[in-house]
């Protein structure tokens, strides 16, 4: 068997085990939260009678272990169950929300990843000179702003001062791609601002690191222009660390943007998860947690494999 195929299979199997562990941890975590689903759902106005009725109906009086294995059995057979709070089918709801999450993440990634790489290359080319300082200065400023501050800033600037975009970014099935892109413009701008610096700095650092090598000197002595040296010789050898950072940021764009979702009322997975944590809606929290964990683990597997493929020494082990 090809060593890379073997590696992929190994990683995927490990990932599955990890997911199982994650599901147990999420379950324990939600169980440990103070408060009770029935009370959380019915709120301040709940009568004791109504609470008891709801607990009975939701099977909350069963032991935790029984509920966990029932749920796990369902997931393995493709049934995520129904939300305790409003009885909707979790798989359907997650499907739609996950679509929105990915739409936002991909839109932000399509802009931020190439931009970060280009800026990183330029910064490395002019290391220590004004383009480098300018790029680093701007991106470090944007990453230092908390997301919600950046969000309120772009809302003010682009909906009130220059009314180009809309402050509420909800997207719905049936909207055209253009309309959807217009709707998510503001959150995309904020997310690009947030993730740009990390990737840019890593690109710059990795390339500068490679630039110390002897073969770069050779390339320069051959008479290649600095940009050619970076593009042909430095960049391919700097891919592994860059990919790890890019993937980390992609994972962040999928699982960590709940603040941005809330500020722009964007109907994606993060907001959905937070609502259900508040209501102690265990099946939904479990399912979303699992989806997030799967995305995270999946992206990290990809990063590992790409790093290995990009490195001839790892690709052809002796």
């Amino acid at each position: 068997m090809h060593p890379i195929l073997k590696l992929v299979i190994q990683r995927v199997a490990l990932g599955c085990l990890l997911l199982l562990a994650v599901s147990a941890v999420i379950f324990l975590g939600v169980e440990a939260l103070p408060g009770d689903t029935a009370q959380a759902i019915l709120g301040q106005s709940a009568t004791p009678q109504a609470l008891e009725n709801l607990r009975q109906q939701m099977g909350l009086n069963e032991p935790a272990l029984v509920r966990y294995f029932k749920w796990l059995g369902g997931v393995l057979t493709g049934d995520l169950g129904k939300s305790l709070t409003n009885g909707t089918d979790i798989a359907t709801a997650i499907g739609q929300r996950l679509g929105n999450t990915l739409f936002l993440a991909v839109s932000a990634a399509v802009i931020s990843v190439p931009l970060a790489l280009i800026l990183g290359l330029v910064a490395a080319r002019y290391a220590g000179r004004w383009p480098d300082k300018l790029i680093s200065g701007i991106t470090l400023t944007t990453i230092s702003l908390p997301e919600f501050v950046a969000a309120y800033f772009v809302i003010y600037l682009l909906t009130q001062v220059f009314p180009v975009f809309l402050p509420v970014s909800m997207v719905f099935p049936g909207m055209s791609l253009g309309a959807k892109l217009h709707a998510v413009a503001l959150p995309v701008i904020v997310l690009v601002m947030v993730v740009l610096a990390h990737m840019m700095r890593m690109t710059r650092a990795a390339i500068l690191n490679v630039m110390q090598s002897a073969y770069i000197e050779t390339a320069e002595l051959k008479g290649l222009t600095p940009m050619q040296v970076i593009w042909k010789h430095a960049f391919p050898n700097a891919i592994a660390p860059i990919v790890s950072v890019v993937v980390l940021n992609l994972a962040y764009l999928v699982v960590g943007v709940v603040v941005v979702e809330v500020v722009f009322s964007y109907n994606a997975l993060g907001q959905y998860l937070v609502d259900h944590v508040t209501k102690r809606d265990l099946p939904v929290v479990q399912a979303v947690g699992l989806v997030f964990a799967a995305v995270y683990i999946g992206l990290n597997i990809i990063a590992d494999v790409v790093s290995i493929v990009a490195n001839p020494r790892l690709r052809h082990p002796k």
Binding site: Y152, Q160, P167, F264, S265
Partner: peptide, 14 residues
């Protein structure tokens, strides 16, 4: 449904 105060106000103003 716009739970964020700032976003809700901005949505009204725009």
């Amino acid at each position: 449904v716009i739970n964020d105060n700032t976003a809700r106000t901005a949505a009204l103003q725009s």
